[in-house]
Amino acid sequence: MSVLEVETVPSPATGQETRAEDELAPTFYVICWNDPVNIMSYVTHVFMKVFGWNREKAQKHMMEVHEKGKSVLVRESAEKAEFYVHQLHMYKLQATMERAE
C-alpha cells in the first residue's frame, strides 16, 4: 500500500451514539429571498452553479422566489447551510439560513 492510499478502518464515528447525536443536531433551511435587481436568468445560473442542479430544478426555485417572494432551497446541517449562504451572497443573492423546527 502506498502512502497515498488510505486503509479503511471502522470508525467509532459511525456508531449508534453518533447517529443519534446527528439526528438531534439542528438542521437549517437555506432560503433565497426575492429582490428587484437580480435578473431571472442570473438567479437560475447561480442555483445551477452553487447546488449543481439541472436547469429545470433551478428554474423552478427561481420562479418560486420571483412569484412567492422566497424559496426554500435545501435543508442542511448548520455547517453546510452556512457554506451555501456564503456562496449565494458571493453572487449577491439575498439568502438566509433559518433553523428548521
Partner: peptide, 8 residues
Amino acid sequence: KPATISQR
C-alpha cells in the same frame, strides 16, 4: 453593504 445571514 452588510449582509444578513438569518432573520433570527
